[in-house]
Design a protein around this nucleic acid. Structure first.
Length: 137
DNA sequence: GCCAACGTTGGC
DNA sequence: GCCAACGTTGGC
């Protein structure tokens, strides 16, 4: 079982959109590194859903419902998509500032490669974000 | 809202 | 296969 983080601008596709749909195709990724990570995702893997932009925060978790397949938004065979289903909404969003302060999270790829939209995290990191979301702000 | 940095695309 | 141009992202 592996752990991941996906980043999305909420004006493009927010957690609320996701929660309404329950399941979505994570498609439209046009970056090779992110694509490679998508292809490594297996059904059942857990994913942190992160909002980028002005109110950036980790807002919930998702589960990989279907491993990589041809991205339906293009005929170009280079690009892949996965299906994600809602796991749980965090009781409280976790901001990048909080994450940076946490020693368990200071090495998140999120902070090393700010443009990457799909990235691996360790189980420890996944659980640390979850734990922060359950603490009082 | 501008601008610099990054990554992908397209022309040679 | 290189490199300039372009589009997108993120920081200020």
């Amino acid at each position: 079982m592996n752990y991941w983080m996906v980043k999305q601008e909420p004006s493009t596709y927010s957690w609320d959109d996701f929660a309404r749909e329950k399941k979505t195709a994570w498609s439209g990724v046009r970056n090779y590194q992110a694509r490679n990570f998508l292809r490594q995702m297996k059904k059942g893997d857990l994913v942190i859903f992160y909002h980028s932009g002005k109110n950036a925060a980790a807002v919930g978790s998702a589960k990989v419902a279907r491993g990589a397949y041809q991205d339906p938004t293009t005929d170009d065979e280079r690009w892949s998509a996965v299906d994600l289903s809602v796991a749980k909404k965090f009781t409280r969003p976790v901001t990048p500032a909080e994450m940076k302060k946490d020693r368990r999270l200071e090495d998140l790829p999120l902070f090393k490669q700010s443009r990457l939209s799909v990235m691996p995290v360790t189980r420890e990191q996944f659980e640390a974000v979850e734990a922060l979301s359950e603490e009082a702000g």
